[in-house]
Design a binder for these strands. Structure first.
Lengths: 179, 179
DNA sequence: GCGCATTAGATATGACTTATATCGAAATTC
DNA sequence: GAATTTCGATATAAGTCATATCTAATGCGC
């Protein structure tokens, strides 16, 4: 028999996988899946000059015209400073407008421009293709079940992570938090 | 004093969620879920001086005694340089040993020490609790379905994005995996 | 045995993601 | 009208990962 050249891994048959224990945890698989998702979606969006995060921001702005940056940050579950650079980019490319809110001159009312809507349409198509690509091993039913399960998990996480009250006393405020 | 609080956006009633469109993509939810997972598991492991990644490395080493660093990197789907610092840490704390492989003096045979096994047992318990915590909104059946769906997605991604797995069997080509 | 290409691990570096702390300006409260 | 809070911006830093390159050791062919 031909002696095995270098690594007779044969893991497909003998060894289930070195990370078999880890694969019994959804958390581990979520992390692995996130890596797959990120690289694929970023590749899909790169031709459009977008990334996963800037696409997400654009999507929320398109769907919620006039929202403020803080709301956008809340929607995407990130801190406020994280969206500034993204909006700088989107705005400088003429995709979104930041107009001072009439009722609150500190705030910006965010809106997608015509070009923004245009790019968004293309990006949405690219992301839809990406979604089909990464979930092509799943039936539509399984994909929906996956989405439902992840939604529950995310909502549970949001509720759990708890109010990080930095004030102290007094009333309670609801806040989301993350990582 | 006015009860409700701050901004009468009224979006809670009108708009289900600003990211409703995004939530129809598993990719988006996976990213959001990953954030929940990471913060929770890291908090759970912090008392033990571990993170998600070092725990994963320890788990693979415990389950696959004698494996080399490159195999570990493959198992965790990361590049080789990324595990060096982790192993430096685990080794300096006496949790894993790096012994030169007898048949290949360039390579290290990784093994968990007694202390490593000990810590691993505790970490595994902590991670199991973490898993129960983040999936407590799901039935065990749904959790298993989630794991299965994610496994399919990850495997699809591995096959697609790039044969990083040199564990397959025979040759492998190089690609990128990005991220 | 002597080169040559390859492989294992280490180092250096950089991209990307995301959080905390703080500031100025505007808004709100008293 | 001063104090406090909120909005967005800036600065900084931590954490996650990849690529390129270096060193030793291996394997192969001559």
């Amino acid at each position: 028999m031909t002696a095995p050249g270098r690594k007779p891994v044969a893991r497909a048959t003998l060894d289930p996988a070195p990370d078999a224990t880890l694969r019994r945890f959804s958390g581990y698989l979520i992390k692995r899946a996130e890596s797959v998702v990120r690289s694929d979606v970023n590749a899909a969006l790169a031709p459009l000059g977008l990334r996963m995060f800037s696409f997400s921001a654009l999507a929320v702005i398109v769907d919620t015209p006039g929202l403020r940056q803080a709301h956008l940050a809340d929607a995407l579950a990130v801190e406020r400073p994280n969206i500034v650079a993204v909006l700088d980019d989107l705005q400088s490319r003429g995709l979104v407008s930041r107009e001072r809110a009439p009722d609150d001159k500190r705030a910006y009312a965010l809106e997608a421009t015509t070009a923004g809507h245009e790019l968004y349409r293309m990006a949405l198509a690219a992301v839809t293709e990406h979604e089909e690509r990464i979930t092509k091993g799943l039936s539509e039913k399984d994909r929906q079940a996956l989405i439902r399960a992840l939604s529950v998990l995310v909502e549970t996480g949001l509720a759990e992570t708890g109010p990080r009250a930095r004030g102290e006393e007094d009333e309670d405020e609801d806040e989301d938090e993350d990582d």
